[in-house]
Write a protein that binds this DNA or RNA. Structure first.
Lengths: 133, 133
DNA sequence: TTCAATTCATTGCATTTGCAATTACTTTCA
DNA sequence: TGAAAGTAATTGCAAATGCAATGAATTGAA
């Protein structure tokens, strides 16, 4: 059953290479596009929460977010109650680029599952949702 | 359907972090363990072939393999017919460590699919095999 | 209520990464 | 055959990465 791990590892690396190449022109390579997408969809996550949600090392995530703040895609806001937390939001620039990012993600996904029937697509989604990691 | 891409990305990153932590003591972090496993199972791939089979950048793969040659896990052999090619084999040291590497991979995989029935496991494997990447 | 354990963000540092370029074959095709 | 195109391995270099450590804030348990 280890083929599952190998398959998803290879798929992930291939998609990351493609997507980073696609968004390098926007300054969103090195998986930076991920943070813009997630912050748009769920505004106000704190840094560690955001990192954990995509399973990226917190220090790497921290530095990428800082870069995205510098380049104007994201902004940070101190939490009112817990002084440790800094919450992440997209700026207008981030919101403006979201549709393009998401469309490419959608396109990558469509290509990936293009040989599956609709039933199989749903089944795959369901099964992936049951995985424990 | 983009959830599929997100799920497998997060799973892959999480598993890589775990596995790298596990095999750092053997000098096999940074995905180095992957090359030992693959070279053991399919001896004689040339460098680019090995890199492509796991979807890792060829230059990164090249440097990792060189490190593994230096540390005694792998060895290279010039191809007899095509002078460009260098084929990769495990050494005794590499072969000796393979069972442990594969057992951990097996264990990670078992944990991942532990909430699935046997039928679901087989179905997941089948569906992943149909993906285009 | 106090102090130990936990959880944040952040930094230091050595290592790794990967794009772009180079060199050395090999293959193709006119 | 011979030049052009394609495919290896390899290197240069700037940037990214991630483990380990730090300090500040919060939580929990006695």
């Amino acid at each position: 059953m280890f083929e599952i791990i190998r398959d998803i590892g290879a798929i992930t690396r291939k998609i990351e290479i493609n997507t980073n190449a696609e968004f390098r022109r926007l300054g969103l390579a090195n998986n930076a596009f991920i943070y813009v997408i997630r912050s748009y969809e769920k505004p106000g996550m704190f840094l560690g929460e955001l990192a954990d949600s995509v399973q990226i090392d917190r220090t790497t995530a921290f530095r990428t977010v800082r870069k995205l703040v510098d380049s104007g895609y994201l902004r940070l806001e101190d939490d009112a109650n817990d002084k440790r937390l800094r919450r992440v939001y997209v700026t207008k620039k981030g919101a403006d680029v979201y549709p393009e990012l998401h469309a490419f993600e959608q396109h990558s996904s469509d290509t990936l599952v293009s040989q599956l029937t609709d039933n199989e697509k749903n089944e795959l989604k369901r099964l992936l949702g049951k995985l424990i990691y």
